[in-house]
Design a protein around this nucleic acid. Structure first.
Lengths: 118, 118
DNA sequence: TCAACGATTCAAGGATTATTGAAATATGGA
DNA sequence: TCCATATTTCAATAATCCTTGAATCGTTGA
């Protein structure tokens, strides 16, 4: 993740509807969600959700794939991890104490990872 | 760090000049930097840097304090750590593998923390 | 082929954000 | 007090982003 991507990702996440969408897609996992379901759950119009999905895709945070009539969107875990990494390295580069609380969260996440990863 | 703050923080970091400023302030540590120095290093006009500093402060990512004629800005480490934490918990809440790369970075940061903290 | 469904695209508007330069504020020293 | 320094505020403009509804595109089944 370079700075260009990070700037786009921060911009994408700075909007309430889009943050909500990302949350839903992360939770829904590899199965993802159809655009219509996203619109329904987020309570926004189809054209509006389409606008925000395009924005999230442009930032590389989600991917799409057509499934019959629906278009399924999935969160890009690699990009999200990369963004966290960018934030930490950018912040840790020189001063490290910012990462301490993050390390605590990471410690709480990694046990689950052992089971989740493959 | 609640969602409102996170949205503001993401918005603040989605602008090139502001990301640059945050980087400089994190590196400069508790001493911080005067507005003029920031403007000079970032190569933007005084009024423009003032605009961006206000934006960063509004998002809670930096703090200011007057020092004679200068106004010294410092990075808010707690807020930056809180933002990383928000991103991780928001992403890890349901699926954990996103945090794996972040955990790796955290592991690389924590050794330094032992010396840096106090 | 035609109709219906799921979704995107487009244009218009309104709202927010960024940049600029001039004017104003605050501080410290002659 | 007066001037210089450091910075902010303000107004105007430009640029970007968000929302809305209508029109369009691709897919499926009758």
């Amino acid at each position: 993740m370079d700075q260009r991507q990070a700037l786009a990702a921060f911009g994408a996440l700075s909007q309430e509807t889009r943050l909500h969408i990302i949350r839903m897609l992360v939770v829904s996992g590899p199965d993802g969600m159809a655009a219509g379901s996203i619109a329904e759950k987020a309570e926004v119009s189809p054209s509006n959700v389409s606008f925000h999905l395009k924005e999230l895709e442009r930032a590389g945070l989600i991917a799409q794939q057509r499934e019959s009539r629906s278009i399924i969107y999935t969160a890009n875990y690699e990009a999200l991890g990369g963004l966290i990494r960018f934030l930490m390295e950018d912040c840790c580069g020189g001063n490290a104490e910012i990462c301490a609380p993050a390390a605590a969260v990471a410690a709480c996440c990694t046990p689950a990872t052992k089971e989740e990863l493959q």
